[in-house]
Simulated assay, not measured.
Amino acid sequence: MKYQQRKKALVLLADGTIFYGKSVGIDGSATGEICFNTGMTGYQEIFTDPSYFGQLMVTTNAHIGNYGVNDLEVESDSIKISGLICRNFSFTHSRVDSDSNLFDWFKKHNLVAISDVDTRALVSYIRDNGAMNAIISTDVDNIDELKKQLAAVPSMEGLELASKVSTKEPYFIGDENAPIKISALDIGIKKNILRNLSKRGAYIKVFPYNSNFADLESFNPDGYFISNGPGDPEPLKEAIELAKEIIKRDLPLFGICLGHQVIALANGISTYKMHNGHRGINHPIKNLLTGKGEITSQNHGFAINREETEANQNVEITHIHLNDNTVAGIRLKNKNVFSVQYHPEASPGPNDSVYLFDQFIEILGKNKEVSSTL
């Protein structure tokens, strides 16, 4: 597609601020909470991450699309972002193992995307003013109508989105003869989480977001997992009750991102909406148990209350985010329950935190050995 053929487009923020750009060639409008990701690579994984459902993505890397798309490099069965805002959109790509270009992939999924936006200025504005709802559109001459559409978009705070991305029916991942069995609650699970568990000798049954303890227990698992996902954790009452039941029965439990927040809520620790969240693949974490630093992949707009976590006698903070000292990991004292706010399954990387999967599998193996002797 030639540059001069592209239509004008815009980003309209909830506070009335407008940034102009050009359409990549798909007409229409898209709404959602605007956020930004600082990763230099991995755009296809970002676009298919269920945790981004309902969000307009601003990519800070200047070039998007230059290495095309590969059908295997996805975190779910479809694009999950509401729309894309970038600086330079590449209609051609130069990677040998690409299956297609990014434009054709967007066209297939009817995703509205705009480029030629001053993303440095836009990201700076979001950093200063916080995440807010926005609309992107090629209908640049009808601002009043766009404002009406934007006003109807619900706030991310208090919004339950797990039901929009969760599986409708249970399914299995891995080798059914694997030594370890895990029941996983899907509240927006990424495929690479399941890959990391299965390649470590686990057979996983994945359950819908509103499943109860009896549902997950029916698989007779060695342990339980609560996934990442989009939206506010507080409306996830079924998931919180499930976590409470697993903890009450003293069973192994691991949670990532939204799952981490659910486990915190199950222990009476509240969550809050962050000013603009953490999204990228270069976030520094300190492991308080080892004293070591980890560079991590993150994607969350909510966090757990640090003061309440420190005051909870049953909970220990295991990881902190070094940029703002928010809680990045917890574990329950005297129980095999732990969680992290970031993504140890990071794809395309970094891989500093994959040891957490090893740790979980080791716990399940030891627990199984103890159970077999009783």
Rank of each mutant, 00 (worst) to 15 (best):
K7D: 13
K8A: 14
V11H: 06
L12C: 00
L12H: 06
L13M: 08
G16H: 03
G16V: 00
G16Q: 04
T17C: 03
F19I: 02
F19L: 03
S23H: 04
S23V: 05
G25N: 04
I26C: 07
I34E: 14
N37T: 00
G39W: 03
G39M: 15
Y43F: 15
Y43R: 00
I46F: 08
T59P: 10
L72T: 13
V74K: 12
D77T: 01
K80Q: 09
K80M: 15
L84R: 02
C86L: 04
S90T: 07
S94E: 13
V96E: 14
D99G: 12
L102W: 00
W105S: 10
W105I: 05
F106V: 02
V112C: 12
A113P: 04
I114C: 14
I114M: 13
D116Q: 15
T119N: 09
S124I: 00
D141V: 00
D141M: 13
N142R: 03
L146C: 03
K148C: 00
K148H: 01
L150E: 06
A152H: 05
A152N: 06
E157V: 01
G158D: 01
L159N: 07
E160D: 09
L161C: 11
S166A: 11
K168L: 12
P170F: 07
Y171D: 09
F172T: 13
I173E: 11
D175C: 15
D175E: 12
P179L: 14
I182S: 12
A184Q: 11
I187G: 07
K190N: 14
K191Q: 15
K191M: 10
N192C: 14
N196R: 15
S198L: 03
K199W: 08
G201L: 10
Y203M: 13
F207P: 15
P208R: 10
N220F: 11
D222T: 03
G223A: 13
Y224N: 09
I226V: 01
S227E: 01
N228K: 07
G229Q: 01
G229C: 06
P235D: 15
E241A: 15
L242H: 08
L242E: 15
K244S: 03
K244E: 13
K244P: 00
I247K: 10
I247D: 08
I247P: 04
P252I: 02
L253K: 02
F254P: 00
I256T: 05
I256H: 05
C257H: 03
G259R: 02
A266Q: 02
G268K: 05
I269W: 08
M274Q: 07
I281W: 15
H283N: 12
P284Y: 05
L289C: 10
S297M: 05
N299K: 02
F302T: 01
A303Y: 00
R306H: 06
N312C: 02
Q313H: 12
I317C: 05
I320S: 08
I320D: 08
H321I: 05
L322N: 08
N323Q: 13
D324E: 06
N325H: 12
V327Q: 07
A328I: 01
I330P: 01
V337T: 05
F338H: 08
Y342A: 10
S347R: 12
N351V: 10
V354E: 14
V354R: 15
Y355V: 03
L356Y: 04
F357V: 06
D358Y: 05
I363A: 13
I363W: 14
L364W: 07
G365D: 11
K366A: 15
K366Q: 13
E369L: 10
L374H: 14
